[in-house]
Design a protein around this nucleic acid. Structure first.
Length: 395
RNA sequence: GGGCAAGUACCAAAGUAGUCAAACGGGCCUGACUGUAAAUCAGGUGGCUUCGGCCUUCGGGGGUGCAAGUCCCUCCUUGCCCA
């Protein structure tokens, strides 16, 4: 059983492992490993792509290994260049603090923070002397640092590469030395930085850490996951939004998501793949599972129920927010803004003209297209678009 | 230190005096269709309005002019090049 889990930890969602044989042996030996993850305290929201790494960390935690989170408060002054093609703005320490508060509560949705060792790398990096830095950097060459893909690109395009940026991998690697990590995990683009950790540990006469990079998962529409594309699921999204977004996932990506973003056993996933004909059903399982991971089974089931009710049956959801209106009669535009369904009267006018407003009184449903209409307030439900509802009550 | 560019709506990016509330694209919203909040197609996307219009917006401030993203001055910010 345990061996099976070890086998799975090595293959599930992984892109690259160095040194795979060594890591497998270490895991089988029963020794408690010190598993490192560097957190860059820049983005305030954790999305599903980032969560795959946390899930992997949880796997290690479940096997009884020790997790060390390194919060890169010092390295944030530099900004990691791995996923960037341009130089990054450094963060202020105030920004870092604010980001981290939020970060940890999000991380806590996935891994057990009580069992995690949290370190800020300013603890040792701020004490590093110039002499130390010179000694450490002697074991690297400028060519080595520049050859990594995105620096190379920038170099060739004549774009700026900050001198300090070249130091980033060294600092990240030094973190590994300081905590004597046995293994470090990272995203697919972290390979270079993680390898530097191995080099430095050798320099400091430690056993080099094994490294594991994870597959990149694509955004909902199949493009690269990016907040500005709007194809991202944040783990703090509302359950019904997570579920809904999964339902809109490109079909080709369903099983990648199963592999990387859930911990449904591989065998079971294979079974789902074989038995389920309609991709929609597979997505429902996926959506429920993902919501469950970040919330609870109950909330996951509710989210699914909501989806089926509203989008499949085109019915009203079970629970609708209620609002009391004092006026006896009111213009429809004012009503829409008052209830908070729409932000401005101009927007309300547009949506009304486009046929996006439905008024539901019992079984009677009417689409209201006249924006000058005066509505008599009585108990009813107003629907704006496909999925916004509000219940109107007389006082 | 010297030279040169650029800062436009949620993002990105056109526009170099009137026809600019500002092209195209992304995002977002609405509709049709659909297994789906997919794809595709169509429309929309500053605010207020007595639906005639009115008001605010193109880095900040100041000017010219009947009229300014559009010209001038100044400040701020960012990027590139030379030293």
């Amino acid at each position: 059983m345990k061996n099976e889990k070890i086998e799975e930890i090595l293959i599930r969602g992984t892109e690259d492992i160095v040194d795979k044989k060594h890591l497998k042996e270490a895991l089988l030996s029963g020794k408690k490993l010190n598993v490192k993850l560097g957190i860059d305290p820049t983005g305030p929201k954790i999305h599903l792509g980032r969560a795959t790494i946390l899930l992997k960390l949880k796997d290690f935690q479940d096997l009884g290994h020790k997790i060390t989170l390194i919060i890169g408060d010092f390295t944030a002054l530099i900004g990691d260049a791995s996923d960037k093609t341009a130089m990054r703005k450094p963060l202020t320490s105030k920004e870092i603090k604010e980001n981290m508060k939020d970060y940890l509560s999000q991380i806590g949705k996935i891994i057990n923070l009580k069992k995690v060792n949290i370190k800020y790398n300013s603890e040792w990096l701020s004490k590093l002397s110039i002499k130390d830095l010179i000694e450490i950097s002697m074991s690297f060459t400028a060519q080595q640092m520049i050859q990594r893909r995105n620096f190379k690109e920038r170099w060739e395009q004549g774009k700026e590469i900050g001198f300090h940026e070249l130091l980033y991998p060294i600092f990240q690697g030094y973190d590994s030395v300081m905590i004597k990590s046995d293994i470090e995990i990272g995203g697919f683009d972290q390979l270079f930085n993680l390898k530097t950790g191995r080099d430095l540990q050798r320099l400091f006469k430690q056993d080099p850490q094994d490294i594991m990079t994870l597959k990149m998962i694509y955004g909902l529409d199949g493009r690269k996951m990016s907040t500005s594309w709007g194809n991202v699921i944040n783990i703090t999204d509302e359950p019904k939004d997570i579920f809904g977004k999964i339902m809109s996932l490109k079909d080709e990506l369903i099983f990648e998501y199963f592999e990387c973003c859930t911990r449904i056993p591989i065998k079971e996933i294979e079974k789902i793949k074989k038995t389920i004909k309609n991709p929609k059903e597979a997505k429902k399982i996926l959506g429920t599972e993902i919501v469950k991971q970040f919330y609870s089974l109950k909330e996951a089931e509710d989210a699914q129920q909501y989806f089926e009710q509203v989008h499949e049956k085109k019915d009203l959801p079970k629970e609708i927010k209620e609002i009391k209106i004092k006026e006896k009669e009111i213009n429809i535009l004012d009503l829409l803004v008052l209830t908070g369904l729409l932000k401005s009267k101009a927007e309300a006018k547009r949506v009304v003209e486009q046929g996006g407003i439905k008024i539901i009184k019992g079984k009677e449903i009417s689409t209201e297209k006249d924006w000058k209409k005066i509505i008599t307030i009585e108990d009813m439900v107003i629907q704006s678009g496909k999925r916004n509802f509000i219940k109107i009550k007389k006082p």
